[in-house]
Design a protein around this nucleic acid. Structure first.
Lengths: 225, 225
DNA sequence: AGCACGCCTGCACGGAATTTGCACATATGC
DNA sequence: GCATATGTGCAAATTCCGTGCAGGCGTGCT
C-alpha cells in the first residue's frame, strides 16, 4: 500500500486530503506541525509527502530541506500565496511539485499520481543520506564524500537498516531480525563482527563515529561527519 | 483499554459522550472544569482528550496549551460557535480535530477513532517533555535546555517511566515493576542508587529537584526548571 | 580437480561500562 | 526519641561489547 504523509496544521484540510487520497486508493497518515512532519517524514514510511508551507514549529520549506538531507522521497507543496511559490521555485530545495490553495482534491490527486508515476522507479532505489554518507541499497552502492566504499552484502543490509531510522537505537535482536529475518538465530558476536568491519571501512573513508553503540540498549546511526 | 478523558462542564453532555464512547469500546473518565481537565490531562492516563471550549476555571483553549507543554496526547475540541472554531484553527494550539455542538454521538466516535488511528503510531515515539527536559526513549536521548545528557539504560527507563505520568507519585514497587517487569526482585536500595545517579546527572545539567521524593509514598517527577 | 580468496560465522577472552546492594548516615513522621 | 524510610560511599558482581582468530563455504581462476 502506498502511504502518503499529509503535513498541514489545518485539520479540515487534512481531512479533505485524506478523504481524497483514500478514495484514490492511497493510505494517508498525518502530521499537524512541522516538527511532527519532520519526524514522520524521516521515518521512511511515506512514498510521498504533502507539505503545507505555513506550519507551526517548523515551516514546510525548512522541513523539506531537513528531509532532503536524508531522503529523496517526493515532496509536493501546498501553498496559499504567490510569494511562497517564488520561494519554492527560487530556492532549490528539491520540491517535486506544488499546488496552490484553494485546490480541487481531484487536481491534487492527479498531481500526486503524476509524481509517483515518474518517481516510483527512482523512489524504489531512493538514496539514504546522512552527512557525507550516501547509501543506495538497491544498487549496492555506498559513498562517503563522493568516494565509493565497497561493502559486503551483510554490511550493506545492516547499514541500510540503521540508516532508515537515523538516531533511533536498534537493539541487537531487532537488528538481527531486520537483517536475517525473524526466527533466524545468529550470534550477537557475529553481528559485532560485521559491525567491526563496517566501522573499519567507514572510518577508513573518513566517517568516524558513524555507528554508535549505546551500552545495554543497542546500536544507533550517529551523525556522519 | 484505551481511556479517553471527557472534559465538559455540562453533566448531560458528559453522559452522552461517556455512553457513546463506552459503547464503542473505550473507557471514559471525566472532568467538570478546566482545572480538573488539566490535572487529569497531565496524568498521562488518557489516550485522547475531548475538551469543551467553554468551561469554568480555565477554558479549553488554555487547558490545551498547558497540556501541549508536556504531552502530545491527541485533543479533540467541542465547540458551539463559529468564532471559537476560528480560534482553534487560528491559534496554533495543537488541536487534532474539533466537533461542533450539537453533534451526533456517532460522528464523534468516528472522529475519535480516526484520530487514534492516525496518531497511535506517532504517539508511540513522541518525545516526552517537561520544562527544559526532553526525553526520547526511542533515540535514547535526554536533553536539558538543548544540552545532551548521557544516561544509562536503567536511568533512561526510570526517567521515562516517571515522565509518562508527570506529577504522579509512583511507589517504589510500582517503579521497580515498571522498569524490571513484575515478579523480578530488586532491592529498594538499588533503585535508590539509580535515582541518585539520575539526580546527579540532571542536577549537573541544571535540573534541580527534577525527581522528588514523597516520604512514605514514592517518587514523583517534579517541575524541571 | 586443485587452489586462492573473500565473506560469513561465531568462540574465547579481556576490558569496560553498568548494575546491584551492603553497611552506614540522615531524614522524616508520629 | 523511636521506628521507618530514604540517601550515600563504595566495591563486588554482572552484563555488555570489541577483538583476535579460525573454520566453513562458495566462487572463480588455473
Amino acid at each position: 500500500m502506498t502511504e502518503i504523509l499529509i503535513a498541514d496544521d489545518d485539520p479540515s484540510i487534512r481531512d479533505l486530503l485524506r478523504i481524497a487520497l483514500e478514495e484514490a486508493g492511497f493510505a494517508a497518515f498525518e502530521a499537524a506541525d512541522g516538527e511532527a512532519a519532520l519526524e514522520l517524514g524521516r521515518s521512511g514510511r511515506a512514498a510521498l509527502i504533502i507539505l503545507d508551507i505555513g506550519m507551526p514549529e517548523r515551516d514546510g520549506l525548512e522541513v523539506c530541506r531537513e528531509i532532503r538531507k536524508t531522503s529523496d522521497v517526493p515532496i509536493l507543496f501546498l501553498t496559499a500565496r504567490q510569494d511562497e511559490i517564488d520561494r519554492i521555485l527560487g530556492l532549490e530545495i528539491g520540491a517535486d511539485d506544488y499546488v496552490t490553495k484553494p485546490f480541487s482534491p481531484r487536481e491534487l490527486v492527479a498531481r500526486v499520481k503524476a509524481i509517483l508515476k515518474r518517481t516510483q522507479p527512482a523512489a524504489a532505489n531512493a538514496t539514504l543520506r546522512r552527512g557525507r554518507l550516501a547509501l543506495d541499497p538497491d544498487r549496492h552502492l555506498c559513498e562517503i564524500a563522493g568516494e565509493a566504499v565497497p561493502l559486503t552484502a551483510r554490511e550493506m543490509e545492516i547499514l541500510s537498516r540503521l540508516m532508515t531510522r537515523p538516531d533511533h537505537v536498534l537493539s541487537r535482536p531487532q537488528l538481527v531480525d531486520a537483517v536475517y529475518g525473524t526466527n533466524i538465530h545468529v550470534s550477537d558476536r557475529t553481528l559485532d563482527s560485521h559491525l567491526r568491519n563496517l566501522r573499519g571501512k567507514l572510518e577508513a573513508a573518513g566517517c568516524i563515529d558513524a555507528i554508535e553503540t549505546v551500552h545495554g540498549v543497542g546500536i544507533r546511526m550517529g551523525p556522519c561527519r
